[in-house]
Design a protein around this nucleic acid. Structure first.
Length: 207
DNA sequence: ATGACGATTTACT
DNA sequence: GTAAATCGTCATA
């Protein structure tokens, strides 16, 4: 019987591309106030490299109330609001005061699918939700797992509401790299292969 | 005080 | 394929 445990601080303390690859295959777990457990396997992650990365919120050393969590120690959560309606969840990488992070773009739902479906379908009665529609995007998975501002800046190595378990990592030969999504404004940085995903996995945000 | 803009998703032609 | 939805955040004044 395989045992799992919450990933420790040292797991997160590395540069963002390394952490992004290492996160693939791990289990992201959300425990609601009711005790209900929701979880999925991480299948797609993007790396944001910090001050030199034009696509990053911390580009040029920018530090505002919104992105303050990027400057925390590795293993903290950076949750931000965008497009007037969506939340996105990042895992902070690096070390304190280095504003680098990994955006979790998709997970393969494993636990609590019925509740995920309810979360996703709220106010969207016309939407037919296949399993592959539940968590196949950064804002979709936040909806499904009920991740919002209340979880910004929490410590993923210590918080009982949101953490990542030490499941088997993805085999390196199963990992593909591609340009990041939605960062066309970032010039040269838009083309760099900083999006990592599991090959031929149907739960990624796009092939 | 104001205006432009999103690390997106969904609906529609 | 295109466009709407929708508003917090930030830079500028």
């Amino acid at each position: 019987m395989p045992s799992t445990s919450t990933l420790p601080r040292r797991f997160y303390r590395r540069d963002a591309p390394d952490l992004a690859r290492a996160l693939l295959g791990r289990r992201l777990v959300r425990v609601l106030d009711t005790g209900q457990r929701l979880a999925g396997r991480i299948v797609e992650v993007e790396a944001y490299l910090g001050v030199e990365d034009r696509a990053a919120h911390s580009f040029g050393g920018r530090r505002t109330p919104r992105n303050e969590a990027m400057y925390l120690d590795a293993g903290h959560a950076y949750v931000y609001f965008t497009y007037g309606m969506h939340w996105c969840f990042n895992v902070v990488a690096g070390r304190p005061d280095l504003p680098v992070a990994c955006l979790i773009r998709a997970i393969e739902p494993l636990e609590g699918l019925d509740l995920m479906r309810l979360h996703r379908a709220a106010k969207r009665p016309r939407l037919t939700l296949r399993d592959t529609d539940l968590c196949s995007g950064p804002a979709k998975l936040c909806q499904a797992l009920a991740i919002d501002r209340s979880l910004n800046a929490i410590d993923l190595t210590a918080d009982r509401r949101l953490f990542i378990e030490n499941d088997s990592p993805a085999r390196p030969d199963r990992i593909a790299a591609a340009p990041r999504v939605g960062v066309d404004y970032a010039g040269d940085w838009a083309d760099k292969p900083l999006r990592f995903l599991l090959r031929e996995n149907p739960h990624v945000s796009r092939p």
